[in-house]
Simulated assay, not measured.
Amino acid sequence: MNSKGFSTDLLTALYIQFGAWLLGRSGPHKAALKINGHYSFFRTLDTTWGAAPSYEQLLQYFGARGLRKAENPMRFLTETGIVTVSAQLRDQDTERRRLAAILMEPADSWSAQLLSDYVDTLRAKNQQGGIDLRSVRLAARAAANLLKSAQVKSGTLPSQKSLELFWRDSPGQVATVTGFIGHLNKRHGLKLQVKPDARWLSTAKRQKAERDLVAMVGDTADDDFEARWIVKSLAYFHNLPRVSRTGLVFQPQDFQGVAGYNVSYQDKTLWVPSAESFLRADPVV
């Protein structure tokens, strides 16, 4: 019945072929339940192109997120060789959409203009092959965060004091935001310090890690609290800020009468205190 809704023979045949593919993949019961839900995707192909478009055209129309929602039709198109997926194009589309979302974040037109001017310079570098889209997006993310933190009013610019406050609250973005600071200095004649002293930054990172630990104490009921606590503890006590919870191996272990955990990290065993021990006293490390 659905196949009668297409205006071209190509899409009629493609949809019938998809139905047979879905039948073989899911069985008659599931295929019958799902087939109507996929009609709109093929109907869009029919009204927009009249045939199966290229992957680039699909990306431009649906976006990477939209294509993920059309999982079965896309799997059919790729498995049958009708469409060839490009991971590079998919990643670029995702980065463009993330960047567009960042540009929409500023609540005032002045901050939006400052951010847009900076992103324009980054895009020019990208087009010249100097940086990739991911780097553009990360730099824009840091710039947007600084503008939000600084709360600049119309016609004003971030000050050294507001920049230092941002560094203190977000020490992990110090390197990423340097490009934006340099851009502000050059474009607006400022003399902001591009990055903090290394010793100051080290202290700021430790203070931030400690604040993160204290903030976690109220979330002890979460199912993954132990793993999250250990990751943050490794950052604070062992200066390991990028440890992933995935594959984390640990076990409860007291040390000098203090409750905590032994954590396997690379070829080492590291100890961190439990949340209760951290609050009661300065743990031995």
Rank of each mutant, 00 (worst) to 15 (best):
R75W: 06
A31M: 11
K161I: 10
E56Q: 12
K125F: 04
P196S: 13
V119I: 06
A198M: 07
L147Q: 07
P196I: 10
D219C: 07
R141Y: 11
F237R: 04
R96E: 01
L22E: 00
R68Q: 13
L11R: 02
K30W: 05
D212L: 02
F42K: 12
P252A: 10
V119S: 00
G24P: 14
S26V: 09
V263F: 11
V214Q: 03
K153W: 14
Q256K: 15
Q173D: 01
M74W: 07
L22S: 02
E71C: 12
H183L: 08
R137T: 07
L146Y: 09
K232S: 12
Q253W: 03
L157D: 08
P273E: 00
A175V: 10
F76I: 05
H188F: 15
A209D: 00
K205A: 09
R97F: 13
S40R: 09
F255G: 02
N145K: 12
I131F: 11
A112K: 14
Q160P: 15
P273G: 05
L99P: 11
L122H: 03
M216K: 05
L77M: 08
V272G: 15
L270N: 13
M104C: 12
R134L: 09
V152Y: 04
R187C: 15
P158A: 12
Q256P: 01
E71Q: 08
R206Y: 02
L45I: 08
R211T: 04
L115P: 10
A124N: 01
L67V: 13
S162Y: 11
E71L: 04
K186L: 11
Q92E: 14
L234T: 02
K125R: 13
Y118I: 05
L103P: 09
L89H: 13
G155L: 00
W167N: 08
N262A: 14
G260E: 01
K268Y: 06
W49A: 03
F76A: 00
S202G: 15
F180Y: 07
D219F: 11
H29V: 14
P106L: 08
H183T: 01
L240K: 09
R65E: 11
H183D: 09
K195S: 13
D212T: 04
R228C: 07
D222M: 11
Y39N: 03
E95P: 04
D219E: 05
A112P: 04
L67M: 05
S233R: 00
P106E: 04
T94R: 09
I181N: 13
E164F: 15
R245N: 12
W49S: 08
G257C: 14
V83N: 04
S86L: 08
K69I: 01
Y55T: 01
L190P: 15
S159F: 03
H29Y: 09
A13M: 14
F6R: 00
R187P: 15
V177M: 10
V217K: 03
F250M: 11
V231C: 05
T47D: 05
D212H: 01
